[in-house]
């Protein structure tokens, strides 16, 4: 079976700046694949190349079996896209948005209208067919964007930061719907910088930075292989000073961020005993998670 999307040795530069620097990955049918990376890592550029919206300097892309960009339009027939910034049509109602969008796929109005109740129901928007887009909340808009992306019954769904800017309730609803789609056999490619989202949804993850993949595997594999299993976070005014002077004796790797020291280690017992005798330092002992992996791979500096 051909993969829904495969990318090999993709390169794209703007001026001297190589935004995508030899990226290769392939999706398996029916999986959820996450592209993770800090701002400016090349995620959106990669997606735009995959859709044939920008031309890469080199590399090959096959999307739903079609070569991109040569047959990008045909490839997009079987892909649904939820963009990072909502671009629903504000001149129309919810139902009109779906009809108009379906026409871009060459679908007959009657065929689209027949699917509207199911799509609106899936989006948790049943009964709002005639509602104006301007009256919808952010979460409702995102769900309508998801419904719009399903209007052509795509085999592959691409979501660019699907829950950015949503409240927890709205995020959980989106996650639930994406899991339903996976259960129906759809393939999903998503970009995110929410690690809990990636850990919850993705079967496999590629962490990209500087236009390169710097870690790839299932969330569990990445945590097991790339990072120490335990983390002790130490807070307080004196935490940086303590970390600089003493933490090294207990923990092979210590990172300081503001007034917090992060100690990564295999066995936390002796460190915790030591910390119990330090007044003024508060501690949190927890298993390592995907965010720790992400920060280890991409560093703690701010990306703007």
């Amino acid at each position: 079976m051909t993969p829904p999307l495969s990318v090999s040795d993709l390169r794209k530069s703007y001026g001297d700046h190589e935004v995508v620097a030899g990226l290769s990955f392939a999706l398996r049918a029916g999986e959820c694949f996450g592209l993770l990376g800090p701002n400016g890592a090349g995620k959106t550029t990669t997606l735009r190349c995959c859709l044939g919206l920008i031309r890469a300097e080199s590399g090959t892309i096959t999307l739903t079996g079609e070569p991109v960009p040569a047959r990008a339009r045909e490839a997009r027939m079987r892909v649904g896209i939820v963009p990072q910034f909502d671009n629903l049509d504000p001149d129309f109602t919810c139902a009109e948005n779906l009809v108009i969008y379906g026409r871009y796929f060459g679908l007959e109005d009657a065929a689209i209208r027949a699917r509207i109740p199911e799509l609106m129901d899936f989006a948790g928007l049943a009964g709002r067919e005639r509602a104006d887009i301007k009256t919808l909340s952010g979460g409702m808009r995102r769900r309508l964007s998801l419904a719009r992306a399903l209007v052509n019954d795509p085999e592959l769904l691409i979501l660019d930061e699907p829950t950015t800017g949503l409240d927890p309730q709205a995020r959980h609803l989106i996650w639930d719907r994406l899991k339903q789609l996976l259960a129906r056999g759809k393939t999903i490619l998503l970009t995110t910088h929410f690690m809990d989202e990636a850990e919850r949804l993705c079967d496999r993850i590629a962490v990209i930075d500087g236009g390169r993949i710097i870690g790839q595997g299932s969330p569990r594999q990445l945590i097991d292989t790339l990072i120490e299993p335990q983390v002790v976070e130490v807070y307080g005014e004196n935490a940086p000073a303590w970390a600089a002077a003493e933490a090294g004796a207990f923990s092979p790797r210590v990172e300081i961020s503001g007034e917090t020291a992060f100690c990564y280690l295999a066995d936390a017992e002796t460190l915790l005993e030591h910390l119990a005798r330090q007044p003024g330092l508060r501690t949190l002992h927890r298993p390592a998670n995907l965010e720790d992996v992400f920060l280890k791979l991409t560093g703690r500096e701010l990306r703007d």
């Binding site: 339009r73 045909e74 896209i81 963009p83 049509d89 969008y101 871009y104 796929f105």
Partner: peptide, 14 residues
């Protein structure tokens, strides 16, 4: 402003 063109370009429309 509305990014309507961007939305359309994600469909099989050039």
């Amino acid at each position: 402003v509305q990014r309507t063109w961007d939305a359309i370009l994600n469909a099989p429309v050039s």
